[in-house]
Design a protein around this nucleic acid. Structure first.
Lengths: 244, 244
DNA sequence: TTTTGAATTTCTGTATACAGAAAATTTGAA
DNA sequence: TTCAAATTTTCTGTATACAGAAATTCAAAA
């Protein structure tokens, strides 16, 4: 692994874990010492993190950790929903190479999720499997669009951890209505695939958008409980108006 | 201006002008000589260009100029339409700080476009003014959404010059149906502002999306004529299946 | 003539030294 | 004590040297 990649991964980790809080100035020399790499790869990593949006340039040169308002977090989720909606619509409207195979693949994924959710009590391992399958569903959906351009845009917004479809699954798992939410989300999954297969672009898009609102709802719940809030990935990046 | 910015601007120019064609390997030493900067700022610029999407990493380290298929170009335009649609919907649905002033601003812009288009013959200067006003309209629309997240996503896709709303204006200006296209695009502008002002989110979104199809139509025309093709910004980046 | 292996060159990734600008600190005067 | 100026320190941006890997070239043998 190159030093640049090492610096990138470790810096991202320091930021998302909250060790480097929002607004924190990222002076190079202290970071060089902390990460054990020289300034050259460190600066490369900072440029990449700026492109990702986790870090911003300050007025007089240098970088600082970026903070996110509540609205920005909601917008990031909504943007993901919009992009997944576009992907779903394109998937439905187009006949790209290998669409049959991809559809079989995503149906398989939805089937596995079905099996999982039918269990009455979900163990910790089950939840881990759910996260994996859920991520696979979203990855496959984007792949089904066959659009590299959409792929890039989705990857971009997903660098914000709270924009990920799995961001709030662990919060959700502790709610009394957890099971109902899983059932609803799964119905979205099923219907999206159905719409894509049938070439129903508008329906596929609307469903993918609505599906992202599950994440939004979970976030709203999480923001109202301290232990929920702390479980959200990248929670330290939040700059909330009302103290939590 | 820093050496990094200099390298970034000059490299971007070399790529968009076609002097560095798609697939061209970007070896550092020749570029250092050509640009007159050292390797450090050059590499910074390459990282930024990769984030922009104009350049891609090759298998064994190093960068190459990225080429775009016809589908990717259409997708880029469609993605811009989708993002502007989201922006228009948010602008319609929300009441952000300073929305009144922003609406007045964009109405002013639409008014200026109206005056311009009413002229029977558009001079070269007129077209230049049109490009400026058209760009201002699109900038203002994004600003009206009040969403930094959407702003970033739009900026990202707009780094591809053929995704810009003005990409095909000059091609269009030489078509017999040029005037009709301007009238149609202007009706879109007018109706988008009307919908945003009235809080009609769905209508605003649909119109902004359809508006991007003007660019697509112009591109399709441009791709069928050699002199049209050559006038498209970033035309050298196209990797078309059928030779042009 | 072709193929294989060795030698050479080229290229990228990294560390570091240096310069100029910005920030912080200290010193001197009111 | 407080403010201003000057000095020192710190920090970023840049150039460059070096190491290791990859690619290329060349030579020799089949």
């Amino acid at each position: 692994m190159s030093q640049t990649v090492k610096a990138l991964l470790e810096l991202r980790d320091l930021i998302l874990s909250g060790e480097l809080p929002p607004g924190e100035k990222l002076s190079e020399l202290p970071l060089v010492e902390k990460l054990g790499v020289s300034r050259t790869p460190l600066r490369m990593a900072l440029v990449k993190l700026e492109a990702e949006g986790l870090v911003e340039v300050t007025a007089n040169g240098g970088y600082a950790v970026r903070g996110f308002t509540e609205t920005e977090i909601f917008d990031a989720i909504e943007l993901r929903g919009t992009l997944e909606g576009m992907a779903a619509r394109l998937a439905a409207e187009r006949r790209p190479e290998g669409k049959r195979e991809r559809l079989a693949e995503i149906r398989d994924c939805v089937g596995a999720l079905d099996t999982l959710i039918r269990r009455h009590r979900l163990s910790g391992d089950d939840f881990y499997d759910y996260v994996r399958l859920n991520e696979r569903f979203h990855t496959e959906l984007i792949a089904l669009s066959g659009s590299r351009v959409v792929q890039r845009a989705v990857d971009q917004i997903m660098t914000l951890p709270f924009a990920s479809p799995n961001a709030f699954v662990f919060v959700q798992s502790e709610l009394p209505e957890s099971r109902e939410i899983l059932v609803i989300a799964q119905e979205h999954h099923r219907a999206i695939v159905e719409a894509v297969a049938a070439g129903e672009g508008t329906r596929a898009e609307a469903l993918a958008r609505e599906h992202s609102r599950v994440a939004r709802r979970n976030l709203e719940i999480a923001l109202n409980t301290r232990q929920g809030f702390e479980r959200v990935p990248g929670a330290s990046l939040f700059r909330l108006a009302a103290a939590v």
